[in-house]
Structures are given as C-alpha cells and as structure tokens.
Write a protein that binds this DNA or RNA. Structure first.
Lengths: 335, 335
DNA sequence: TGATTAAATCGAACCGGTTCGATTAAGCTA
DNA sequence: TAGCTTAATCGAACCGGTTCGATTTAATCA
C-alpha cells in the first residue's frame, strides 16, 4: 500500500505539502498540485483512514445505536442516515444494544474509542447515571425515538401523545367505550405519552377507564402477550384494545387468535407503529405510523450539521417533533 | 485521556515495558507488573484502539456485510456473531449493502481500510470481477447464505435443494399436482437450488410442471407480487404455490388476498425462510426455516478460528451446510 | 568469583497520517 | 534595487500505540 511519503518522494515535494494539497488544495500552487495529482495516481495512493483518525483525533464514522436493528422503524431511519452520510463521505457503524442499557453503554464507549464523528442514539436509559454518561459524551449526539428528560441533546421524534389520542378518538367515534390499552415501560417517554394521549381523550369524552383495562406490556412480546391475556380472560372484556406499540399489539392479536376471539368481530384492535408485512396480516391493523423517512432525514441532517460545524457546539439543543399519520385498516369495527 | 506514556512515567518504567506488560505479562517481572497495574488504575488508562490498530496493522473489529440487516435471518446471525465476538474481545461492525454489489464493495473496502480482523460476508455478486475482488481480500473471510461458485472461501449455509424438495414433497403428499413456484434471481445459488429441489421432486413423482407455473419473483416484493399475479390470473390456476423465499411468498399471499382467493381453501401456500410475526399471519404459512442460531454460531467460530490462526491461511476453505427444518402451518390443505 | 546464559528492561524506529511555526520564493511598492 | 508582504513549501513534532535489537540485570555454572 502506497503511503503519503511515496507520493511526496515521487512528486518531489515534502510530505506536508502533499497532506496540504489533499486537505486544502487552494493553498498549493497549480503546478505542484498537478505533480502531486500525477504522483497519487501513479502510486495508487489512498489515505489510510486509521492514520488520519489518529492524527486528527476524529474519524469519518458515525455511530448508530438502537435497541433493535430488526425493527423496521429503526431500519428505515438507518437507511436514511446511511444514504445521507455516504453523500457526505461518512460511514455508518450500526450497533444493536438489544435494549439493554449496559450494553448500549459499552457500545457507545467503543464507538467513542473509535473516535466517531458523531452518534445517532435511541436512548435506552433514564436514570441519573445514564444522564451523566450521555452528558459526558464529547461528540455530536442526536437522540431520537425516546425523549429522555434531562438529556440536553438534539432530539428527533414523533408526537406520541397525538398518536395515542388519534387512535383513541377513532375507537370512540366507532362507538367503543370499553377500550383497553396495553402500555409500555413507565420510564419510556413514548409509552407515557401515548398513554396520556389515550387517557386524556377518554377523559375528555367523559368515558371512565376501568383500572383493569390498563395493563403493562413492557413493549415486549412476552409481557405484551400476558397483558393481553389478562385483558381477555376478564368476565367484562373490552370491546377494543389499543396496543401502545407494534409488539404488544401483535402479541394481543396472537392472544386473541389463540383464545378464539375474532378481530374485529369480537374485539377491535389498533396499534402504534408499523411492522413489516402488516399488509398481509389479517385483519389489517388500524394504526398510527411515524414518518420514518422524514425522521431519518432530520436526524441525518442535524447530526451532519453538528459534525461539520463543531463551533456550533454552543448552538442549543433542539427538539424536532413530527406528526404521525393515521392509517386505517379493518381491525376496528363500529359498534 | 491518559496515554501509555503517562502510565510509564508514573510506574517509572519505559513505555515499551508497559506495552509488553499489557500484551505479554509473562515476560515482565512480578513487581514491575504490579507497579504498572497500579499506575494504570491510577491514571485510568485505556489503550486507544485506533493507535493499536495503526501500529499493529490489524484491528479488533469484525466486519459484517449483508444485504438487509432488517431481515430476521441476518439479524439472528448477527446476534450470534456479536455475542461470540464479544466473548473474544472483538467488536462487530455491521453494514448494510441493500443488496447492491457496488455498495457492498465500497463497504468492504472501507472495512478493509479499517484493518478489520475478518469479514462475515453474505455475497451479493457473482461475476468474474466480483470473484476477483473477493479473492483479492487479504483478510479472513467467511461467506454465508449465498454459495457463489468461484469464491474460494469458507462457506456456511443451508441445504437449499432439500428445502425446496421438502415443501414440494409435502404438497405432493397432500395431493397437489398443479404446483407453481415463484423463484429468485438465477444467479443466486439459493434460488437455483431451491428450484432444483422443487423440479427434481416433481419429476421424481412423475408430475409435469407447466412452464406457466414457474415464475421469477427476484426475491423482491414488487417482482414477487407481479409474479404471483401472473400465476393467479391464468385460467388454469395452480392449487398450490411455493414461494422460494419469504418475500415472494408473502407477496403472493397479498396478491391472493387482493384477488379474493382464500388460503388454503382456494390455493395453498408454502414458503422458505421465516419472517417476523409469522405467527400472527393468517393463515400460518407452512414453511422450511434455516437454523439461524446454528449458522451464526458456525460463522462466528470459523471466522474467529481464521483470525486467531493466521498461519492456518493454508487451511483449505470448507463448506458447512446445515439441514433446514420443516415447520407445518395451516396454509396447505389436502385435496 | 569470573564467565556464561537467560530474563528483564529500555531506546528508538515505526505505523501513516496532520499540524503549525519556520523558511524560502515570489510579487509588489517606493 | 533594496525593503516589505504575501504565497508556497518545508521540517519536525505529534497522535498513541507496537516491535525488535540492544543493553542492563539477575540467575546459573564451572
């Protein structure tokens, strides 16, 4: 592999001139530039990214840290980020924390060690220790998905309150009153907001919600399934279930199927966030989806902005909250 | 950030001794070792991976290159690899080529530039140019999923011929004769093998296959959907459809639903490879799945073996082919 | 106890770039 | 043409480790 010294020797200039020619051609004379160009082509020189990173103290890599790369929500965002980064000579390193805070931390530390230019992070923690950790990161960070109070970083996400409210309103309009909700972890902003959206909408409509109709599904498959089961075995069953995310909603659908309840004839179902192949799931679930394309674009641009304008470190963190979209299916019937 | 020189100064030894103590403690005296240990703890020294990689000419990173990280098949394998690598002080850099050969190439080149210790690669190309490129890679490489003739590397995959044969046999046993197949790209080994398994089994059973019943779905959603449509609008429809991968099979299901065909009452459906949430898709598709857990384990161990035994470069490449598993659903009816 | 050998440690070069103050060349003014 | 500015180029230090031959120290043996 040819090094910058080979180029310098062949072009008969100093190493520093070659380096300068590469990073700031305007400051090198035309004829020297030409000599260097030819030398580079002759020896087939390509700068070693590792050496560059070491010398500069910064690489051209962007860390992408989420809890589940398999989730299409994160997948769409990842794709947006990758494309945008590629257009700006950056390279995305994808990592998966499986939702575990300690793993996420190890990953982030590793990425920092790699001197990544910036981080796109879907936070998985919330306690003071975690906040301190994030605050201590000395690179541009754009958080997304979960808004964590106490994190002073740019944030990109959706209006989760509205998401919960929209679906609840829809069910109310269809005549449902006995509406149950399967929620997520109480420390997750998305979970609490979606629930607030539900609760407020119900309250505004003057419909009381039985405590038995609010169950915690932890946003996981097993907990979601159990939560749904608890709802379904009650003598006074709900007529509709709102799944606060895709996982718990589909777990509920599975539970319904196993218990022999038909959807929507017996029980209606609505969910927040899409899944792959939702179009072939019967019934097609009525849902509210986030604009992953737009979210990804904003994350990418904001992060790259922070990276290329390091002086803008003083620029205060900003929240970008997008409006989610209602996508009707046929899983909710009028009663 | 503390450097190795800080440690050396505090422990009152040379930098090289500290380095030696870290890489080969046995060659350093007990008391020096202890001094160094304390100094490391005192200054909170952590070796800079970038500097190490530059000096060693090799990093502790493993490149993972696939066409779609969101695909649960690749996701499962990724997880296996990550866990195994972590246990061996390595770090997996996940990249997504979107199935594009040129993008894959750029990613691989980038990873090589990062001096990755090894590559786990699901090949997306097949022409001579591509073969040369892969052959020229001067790092341990374990290929998986697609077996590409001409690539002289370790390969880990499933018996795709058997996968195709199993489902075909199953449909034949149920009494189907008019069985159609939606295939994948002819340059993909998985596609041709699965088709061969289908064709041979049909031939062995003495059942002729109408050319109209073999359509190319490119393993993509749009092509799969169109292929399915072509099958379904024929006057002489098949009684069963075999989707050679999950994408084309589910596209077919969607087409069937849209045209008002019931599955399995009107048409049976079987597919190769699982998808997320298949358990809530109605009907539950009968399928053959790969043992992703085992595949991932073998890939991980083989790659790490190559990495830690570089002299074993002479060890000839080996193929590991696992037997897929039949998972009955209720998408195939007896006729 | 001096010679021999092995073990422990060190110094310096190196990996391949970047950066910045110093030096030289070129251009302009009086 | 001397004097001054600006542009172009250079040299050396640096980023933070590793490596290996050289040197010092300790252990072994005659």
């Amino acid at each position: 592999m040819a090094t910058i010294r080979d180029v310098a020797k062949l072009a008969d200039v100093s190493v520093s001139t070659v380096s300068l020619a590469l990073s700031n051609p305007a400051r090198v004379s035309q004829k020297t530039l030409e000599k260097i160009r030819q030398a580079i082509a002759a020896v087939g020189f390509v700068a070693d990214p590792l050496a560059q990173s070491l010398a500069r103290g910064r690489s051209r890599m962007i860390g992408f840290v989420v809890g589940n790369v398999g989730n299409p929500f994160f997948g769409d965002i990842r794709r947006e980020l990758e494309n945008y980064a590629l257009d700006h000579q950056h390279f995305v390193v994808v990592t998966d924390s499986s939702g575990k805070t300690d793993r996420e931390r190890a990953l982030v530390e590793h990425l920092i060690g790699l001197k990544t230019a910036g981080l796109a992070l879907a936070p998985s923690g919330y306690d003071q220790d975690y906040l301190d950790f994030i605050a201590g990161l000395n690179v541009p960070v754009v958080c997304f998905d979960q808004k964590v109070v106490g994190i002073e970083r740019d944030f990109v996400g959706s209006d989760n309150y509205l998401a919960g409210a929209m679906l609840t309103e829809h069910l109310l309009q269809l005549g449902h009153r006995r509406i149950a909700v399967i929620t997520g972890p109480s420390h997750m902003h998305t979970a609490t907001e979606r629930y607030r959206g539900f609760a407020d909408t119900m309250a505004n409509a003057g419909v009381e919600v039985s405590p038995n109709f609010v169950v915690d599904g932890q946003f996981t498959r097993t907990a979601g399934y159990e939560a749904a089961m608890r709802l379904l075995i009650q003598p006074e069953r709900p007529t509709a279930i709102l799944g606060a995310n895709n996982t718990v909603a589909l777990s509920a659908l599975q539970a319904m199927q196993e218990l022999g309840f038909r959807c929507p004839e017996d029980i209606s179902l609505a969910m927040i966030d899409n899944v792959q192949w939702s179009s072939v799931i019967t019934p097609r679930i009525t849902m509210v989806v986030q604009d992953t394309h737009a979210l990804g674009g904003i994350i990418a641009r904001r992060l790259m902005h922070r990276i290329t304008n390091p002086q803008g470190a003083v620029e205060p963190p900003q929240d970008f909250v997008l409006t989610p979209k209602f996508v009707p299916g046929n899983s909710c019937r009028r009663i």
